[in-house]
Amino acid sequence: MTINWWTLGLQAVNVLILVWLLSRVFWRPVAEAIARRQDVVQTMLNDAKTAHDSAAAALAEVGTTRAGMAAEREALLSEATRKAEAAAKAALADASRQAKTLLKAAQTTAARETDAARAKAAAASAALAVDIARKLLGRLETAEVQAAFLHLLVTAIDQMPPKDRAALLKAETRVDLLSAVDLDAAAKAKVANAVGKALGGAPELNFVTDPDLIAGFELRTPHFVLRNSWQADLAAIQKDLKNAI
């Protein structure tokens, strides 16, 4: 067995050349292609991670903003509730105050109307009573009643001041003597006699019939009236009733 050293050396050189050639045309280009793709993929992954991080940050920001909005909403709702409660309380107090005022006014009005109605009813009742009394007294026009009213007239004249009685006796004074019914001559003479006696003279009497008197005798001058009749009494009673209400 012999070794051809030339062949050994040539084969070593051949393999070294092959190593160099394949490194240039095969191993390095393919490895660079793999590395290039890995770089691209890594870049894409980094971009995706960056996008993911950005999205996460944006999501966190949205969450923070949403939380802030929720807090602001809660604050606004609380403020609105507080204002609404205050407004409702104020409105309730105002309504209560107005209701009290209205109630008081209504009570006042009701009382006034009640008083007015009562007064009106009382006045109507008094008027009715007076009317009833007038109708009833109208049936009592008798000689006794005339005599009684004549007596009352004489008494009233007696109670007049002397100056007034003297004024009635003056010649220029016309004195009307009103009666409810027409008097016959005897009755007129009796009345004129009684009145003259009470006055202390002989006045010129003008007998006038006024059915409104119901019963009684009254003296009237342009400046003087001496009332003495059922009408005057009823008017006084009605006035008293009206004042009493």
Partner: peptide, 11 residues
Amino acid sequence: QLETDAALAAL
């Protein structure tokens, strides 16, 4: 061949 394997081993 011996030479080729020897060359590879030497490398």
